[in-house]
Write a protein that binds this DNA or RNA. Sequence first.
DNA 1: ATGTTAAATTATAATGATTATAAATTAATA
DNA 2: TATTAATTTATAATCATTATAATTTAACAT
Lengths: 137, 137
Amino acid sequence: MMINKLKNLGLKLTPQRLAILNLLEGNAKHPSAEEIYNQLKPQYPSLSLATVYNTLEILAKAGELQEIRIKADKRHFDPNPAPHGHFLCRSCQSIYDLDAGPLEIQTPFNIKGYLVEEYTLYFYGICPRCWEKSSGK
Amino acid sequence: MMINKLKNLGLKLTPQRLAILNLLEGNAKHPSAEEIYNQLKPQYPSLSLATVYNTLEILAKAGELQEIRIKADKRHFDPNPAPHGHFLCRSCQSIYDLDAGPLEIQTPFNIKGYLVEEYTLYFYGICPRCWEKSSGK
DNA sequence: ATGTTAAATTATAATGATTATAAATTAATA
DNA sequence: TATTAATTTATAATCATTATAATTTAACAT
């Protein structure tokens, strides 16, 4: 559970942090900081956007989540820190996890003398749901 | 030559555009809009940053170059529009082309019902030059 | 050559996500 | 319950990029 990770890092367990962790746990929607903020605001009226960013940065640095920069303008967050591909649907703008079998490699590795410690794999196209819609029925 | 591409698109051949095209042609440094602007400014004192962005966007839309979003803050530009991997050196911050053999796939393709029309492959680590430096010699 | 005109350039302002700041609050320990 | 360092908060600052509107100009027709 993520909460223990926070404790282990010597961080305070504030209600705001717990709420953010709770919202992220098992969340496959890859929300942005603003989306997290808007979703929690009703329940935590004093919550500040700065706190959301702050918490996300702490968790990212601790390796508990990963930032996704699949869109030009905004960052999104994935509670699963393990490296895996992501897919942005051009039509509905949703972000999906997409493990791409042979494309997924263990890091670190070396290509032509370049030591690769991390890598990102972003796919752009049409998701199955939007494909269904567009091709009748 | 890129100039013919502009003509074919029905675009005007302005000195600014020619200068930008000329700077990019065969350039493997992946400059940002600001870097392009700063490099051309001495020779074209009237050049505006907006023109640089404008030209880059036109060329990108025309498929004559690709945008690289390997850094969080800035976009960079590659005169080679063919899909290929890029590498950002954590140490010197340089961006290199890096074809990653088995990782490079022809688009479009389909994974688990997702129609992938484009994809990006960004690597992060230490480049050979910086690796040399750090390990003695 | 020159005039005409739509397109391009320019300076500048606006945008918007993210980060910094500094004062007020609070979790954790004694 | 007091203490204190960490956290939260509201707000301002940052900075790459985009929009705007006035000026200039490449391309074409005369």
